[in-house]
Design a protein around this nucleic acid. Structure first.
Lengths: 217, 217
DNA sequence: CGCGTGTTTGATAGCAATCAAGTTCTGTGG
DNA sequence: CCACAGAACTTGATTGCTATCAAACACGCG
C-alpha cells in the first residue's frame, strides 16, 4: 500500500487488501477546494481520511510560530491517524482534491475491532517509515542536497518525463527546514548543474538522473 | 504507556494494560553490556523488545556515512517494532541494560491476532509521536535551543534534583544533527547563561528552569 | 492592462562546520 | 594509591553556508 505506487496514476485505486475495503465500505466521499482545511490542529480525531485525488499537506504549528510540515500526501495515502483524542496536525488541500472520510467507531463496530486494529497497525507503520525518512531528509548536509532529494521523491511518485511539484516554494522550504530564498536559489543552481530543468515554476524535467542523484547524496 | 512516566523510576513496572501482559507473558529476559548490539540493521525483525532497565539507542546508517539516531529508549519503552521483514535500525546498549525479548509470532498465536494487532497499533502510534517530536527538535532554529531542549527532555524523564545524561556528546550531536564541537560549546554556554550547571560530564542540575525553558524555545 | 501574490536575485551578517590543539576524565596496571 | 594511556571532551581560529533584509521580477487573474 505504499503511496508511491498508488500515486503514479494520480487517482487512488483500491488494492486487494482488508484495509482498503474498510475505507471503501465506510468512507464518505468529500471534495475540498484549494487551501481548504480538511481538519484543524486541536480538532477531535474521530475520523480517518484517505486521499482519492489531489494533494494534501499536514502541518503543525510550533510554539515559536514556525510551521512544520508533517507530510505531503498523494492519492492512496491515509492521513489523520493520530491516536490521541485531538489532531496534532492540521490538514489542508493543495489544490482541489477528493477524500474518503470514515468514522473510526463505525469501522471498528461494523468491521470488527480486529480488522480495524490490523488496519491501523499497517497504516501507522507506514506513517512511521515516512516520518523517519523525513527525518533523514531534513538532516541532510546541504540545502542543495535536500532540494535535489525532494525533487527526486516527487518525480518518483509520478510518471515522467515531466513532473509537477504539487507544492509551492514556501511549502518546500517548510518541509526541508530551509527558507524560501534558499530553496529558490537551489532550484536555480540545480538547473545550472544539477541535471534538471524547470518549465514554469511547478513543472520540471530530469535531464540527467544520475547527476541529480549524485547531488542529492 | 508513555516512556516519560515509566522512566521516572528508572525501572520498568507493568501498567494495567493488555500490551504489557503480552511482553510479560511471552518475553524472555536478557542482559546486555555497554556497547553491545541488541539487534543490527538488516537483521530479521521477528522479535519485539521492551527495555526493563538502562538505556538503549537505535541508529541508522545513511548512505553518506552519517549516523542518524532514531531514538533513545528508557525503561518501559518498546523498540524494534519495524513492520518490514528486516530491521531498518540498529539497537545498542548505552551502558548495561536488561531487555524483555518476545517472538512476534508466538504472541500473535497464543494471545490472539486481535490482541497482538491492538498492541502493535498502540506501540506504533507512540513511536510515531516520538518521531514527529524528534523532527521538530531537529528543525529548531539554533544549536543552543536544541541542546537546551534535549536537556529538558532528559530531565523530564528523571526525578530531580540532579539529572544524568545517558548518552555522550557524540550521541547528542547525532540526535540533534549537530557536530560534537558545537554541542560542547552549547553546553558551556548553557552553564554561563542558560540556568543549568554540569557536575562532571554526564550529570547536571537545573538552577533556573524558566531560563532554560526560555532558551529552548 | 495592471494589481497582487509568489518567486527570484542581490548584499550582508551570523551561526555552525571544519580543522587543529589542548584538556579532563576513566579505566588499567604497577 | 598513584601513574599512565587512551578516550572523551573542550576550546580556539577560520571558513563557508544559510538566514536575513531588501528589492526586482514574473506570472495569474480580474
Amino acid at each position: 500500500m505504499p503511496s508511491l505506487a498508488a500515486a503514479a496514476t494520480q487517482t487512488y485505486r483500491p488494492a486487494n487488501d482488508a484495509g482498503e475495503d474498510l475505507m471503501q465500505r465506510f468512507g464518505v466521499r468529500m471534495v475540498f477546494a484549494d487551501g481548504e482545511d480538511i481538519f484543524a490542529q486541536g480538532e477531535p480525531a474521530d475520523l480517518l481520511y484517505r486521499l482519492v485525488s489531489g494533494t494534501v499537506r499536514t502541518t503543525r504549528l510550533a510554539r515559536d510560530g514556525r510551521r512544520q510540515i508533517g507530510d505531503f500526501h498523494q492519492p492512496g495515502d491515509l492521513f489523520g491517524l493520530e491516536q490521541s483524542a485531538l489532531h496534532r496536525f492540521c490538514a489542508e488541500a493543495l489544490g482541489a482534491c477528493e477524500v474518503l472520510v470514515a468514522r473510526r467507531g463505525a469501522m471498528a463496530r461494523f468491521a470488527g475491532q480486529q480488522a480495524f486494529d490490523h488496519f491501523m497497525a499497517e497504516a501507522l507503520a507506514e506513517a512511521l517509515d515516512r516520518a523517519q525518512d523525513h527525518l533523514i531528509l531534513v538532516g541532510r548536509r546541504t540545502a542543495l542536497a535536500k532540494v535535489a532529494r525532494l525533487l527526486l521523491n516527487v518525480a518518483g511518485r509520478q510518471a515522467g518525463p515531466a513532473f509537477v511539484l504539487p507544492m509551492g516554494r514556501q511549502d518546500m522550504a517548510d518541509y526541508l527546514d530551509l527558507t524560501i530564498e534558499t530553496v529558490s536559489r537551489m532550484v536555480t543552481q540545480l538547473q545550472a548543474a544539477g541535471g534538471c530543468r524547470f518549465v514554469g515554476r511547478r513543472t520540471f524535467l530530469i535531464k540527467d538522473h544520475a547527476r541529480l542523484e549524485a547531488v542529492a547524496d
